[in-house]
Design a protein around this nucleic acid. Sequence first.
DNA 1: TTTACTGCAAATCTTTTGCATCAAC
DNA 2: GTTGATGCAAAAGATTTGCAGTAAA
Lengths: 147, 147
Amino acid sequence: MTDELSHQGYRMTPQRLMIVAAVENSSNHISADEIYSQVVAKYPNVNVSTVYRTLELLERLGLVTKTDLGGGRVMYHPVEKGHHHHLVCKECGAIIDLDESALMPLKESLLHQYQFIADLRHLGILGVCVNCRQQTPKKPAESQQGE
Amino acid sequence: MTDELSHQGYRMTPQRLMIVAAVENSSNHISADEIYSQVVAKYPNVNVSTVYRTLELLERLGLVTKTDLGGGRVMYHPVEKGHHHHLVCKECGAIIDLDESALMPLKESLLHQYQFIADLRHLGILGVCVNCRQQTPKKPAESQQGE
DNA sequence: TTTACTGCAAATCTTTTGCATCAAC
DNA sequence: GTTGATGCAAAAGATTTGCAGTAAA
């Protein structure tokens, strides 16, 4: 990503480097807020607006994608890590990655029945995961709400 | 809905009646903001917070569901009208209703392969609709990769 | 009369923007 | 030295909340 940036003539500032690193090191998806926290830890002067501006740039260059899983928090993930989808557990907030192939039948049926080209990059499916399903007791959900 | 409310001991205020009416009369999905606009037109004194509080109540009572289609606007729709899903066109913003049956195969495969109980009431699928598909082919990067 | 509901204003929370300054090239 | 990038503060947009007054039952 940094190569791509400098290649395209963008300046390589320490802030940018750290933000890019945060996105690249994220397992899969990361919010602007999480990136900000990470960067601030080592570079107390950075501002959130820089994070947003950098993410916007990365998105414009096609290096990261933005996903709105609902709940008022947009997630970012590096394109180079490939596409994946999310099963979001509404009990415990866990995010399970879903293989692309699981959605191909849906994509095809939408295309044939509705002539709709589904962009399944941005898909989050809400539900209940295995663990929460078995431990019926409701945890005082900490991470998510968007019921 | 009004029956249900008064039945449960909630007070029937004119504001509440109008908010409920707005939700019931909406074709399918309506935002808090749209409800507010409708209500304010006839009752200039109502406040947005009343709209939100009423929607929260209706949701708690299981009379409406909340759907976050992304883009920072939450949509509400009456449960009694049955579930439906949305195909959201990212070109023109059109929202196409999708029959529940189209998603049953997905729901089942998620259950079997991931032991995940998908709550498909809250699903919005981004993509490109028929009209926009036939017209100006815009961003080559996006439509090509099928990312 | 009682207290649930409302309006208002102010607070959140996430993201954006204007602007003067600063630093990458 | 240019001018693109940053920090700061303030704005914007959606939603929430504290509080005192009001009206439904």
